[in-house]
Design a protein around this nucleic acid. Structure first.
Lengths: 218, 218
DNA sequence: CAAAAACTAGACCAATTGGTTAGTTTTTTG
DNA sequence: CAAAAAACTAACCAATTGGTCTAGTTTTTG
């Protein structure tokens, strides 16, 4: 019987579900939602197509489950930062975390990027609201830093966009980066790039890079 | 008879071809290559599907024609910059042009971004080679600036990635930016954003922002 | 161990896709 | 104005798509 309601502790189904999500992440990252087919995902996961549809009632349901999973990992220490924290350290830490996200989860980053690029149609309203709330909160903290003289005047929104852009770029444009450098980004290349991004942005805001981030980020 | 080879001066066919390309740009930007259908493009251009296939022999041919057209507009004044030019002015000008490109051709930027995101499969080898040559040339100029003491030491490659990332972001992530700001970017918003990006990056490299770019970029 | 739940999978279907054929209409031009 | 060239389009097709149905197998559990 197809109840299609399995609890999370079921070991066999849980394994399969995870492997399907992993396969889907790869397929969707390379082909987008419409371009990725259930067949391709099934093949990637070494399963018959029907089996995929047993675990996820439709392609859209699978995709949204995947997107939700990705969004849940989208947190960082910057979420907890307050106006009492040090701007240089907080921003450097945030940048380092974002770069690490691009390095470790390029496919998740790509799906996230693809989603936004074509209109964030699959993000549910709740996420959008929460994201907006998060954004407004972070803007407030940055503005408080400015008000308190801890940070030179700058538009907080553009600063956040700037951070997202320059860190996410390393996942989304990995192909181009690899082609132009003649080699893929290694772990140590990522460390070097992270230092550069931190330095560029912090110095760009008139902040001094904390010594902790001068040698090895994170 | 289907010669399918029309000269560029033919006015009727040329108009149609342009309108099809414009429709295709919109459709592909929103749905990607696999996600966009000839039907959708035809509808967007107010034409029957067969008519689209009359001008472009296949979906792939249409897409590649579009990509080529986009790539031809991808030039900027930075192409001609030499080590004798002023780094601050040259970089600021380049950033301003890239921002203007994002503002005026968001769909082209999105297609470009989508293409790279899933592996630049449709870029022909010639373009890739030329792009690499261009990139290496620009890296050399930047390194010469550093050698001549005009610019503080920095990895030229990461600097270029940084510029691309932060300018292209405004096209690719326009939806997110609009949602978080509660309004789309107006022309004057773009001017403000451009000033911020220029200031962030130039200051990030230890350069002083030329007065010309302090008030109204370009 | 037996019943129930969870899982696997082949056959099948309607809808959409990219693309062809074959012919008609419109425009150009000698 | 007539013939040739260019522009257009309805009808059709094979392939792929997302998804269902049905039935069998394995695993869990009382």
């Amino acid at each position: 019987m197809n109840t299609k309601e399995k609890n999370a502790t079921n070991s066999i189904g849980d394994k399969r579900r995870k492997s399907i999500l992993k396969a889907a992440e790869k397929v969707f990252a390379q082909n987008g939602f419409k371009g990725g087919s259930i067949q391709m995902i099934a093949k990637q996961a070494n399963l018959p197509k029907t089996n995929v549809l047993y675990y996820f009632k439709s392609k859209l349901a699978l995709y949204q489950a995947l997107v939700n999973e990705i969004l849940h990992t989208w947190n960082s220490s910057f979420d907890q930062v307050t106006e009492n924290d040090d701007p240089a350290h907080s921003l450097a830490q945030y940048i380092a975390e974002k770069m690490e996200m691009s390095r470790k989860n390029p496919n998740a980053s790509k799906i996230f990027g693809l989603e936004i690029l074509n209109g964030a149609q699959s993000f549910d309203a709740t996420f959008k609201q929460n994201h907006k709330i998060w954004f407004d909160g972070r803007v407030k903290v940055i503005n408080a830093w400015i008000a308190n003289g801890k940070l030179a005047p700058i538009n907080a929104e553009y600063l956040l966009f700037h951070i997202w852009a320059s860190t996410q770029h390393y996942a989304d444009f990995a192909t181009q980066i690899k082609d132009l450098r003649n080699k893929a980004m290694s772990k140590s290349d990522y460390q070097e790039a992270t230092q550069h991004v931190i330095k560029l942005i912090l110095q760009g805001c008139g902040l001094k890079v904390p010594t902790h981030f001068l040698e090895k980020p994170q």
